[in-house]
Amino acid sequence: MAGWIEACGADDVDEEDVIRFDHEGRTFAIYRSPDDEYFATDGLCTHEKIHLADGLVMDDIIECPKHNGRFNYKTGQAKGAPVCVNLKTYPVKVEGGQVFVQID
């Protein structure tokens, strides 16, 4: 298993928001929940490969900007059409004001 990768500063993500993080040709989405927890998923929607970081975070949901497909970004669960395939999630930790993602 690969190690922890430094993705961004904890303050780079607003509360209840998401940013994009690219690493070695892959793209991820880093979320900060309304209760100040951090999460990470694949960066592209499983419907049509649109960047989720342009979408809207509402509670524990990320809504895709293209067709409004919704995922639970904590579990990756797809919440219904037009998204049918779950999103891959990654472990996250915050240390020294930095957000780290464990990428496999």
């Binding site: 419907h47 049509e48 293209k66 067709h67 059409a81 037009p82």
Partner: peptide
């Protein structure tokens, strides 16, 4: 159901 998918295509 059909039209949810057709409308997604309309936006793509």
């Amino acid at each position: 159901v059909t039209w949810r998918w057709s409308h997604a295509r309309h936006h793509t």
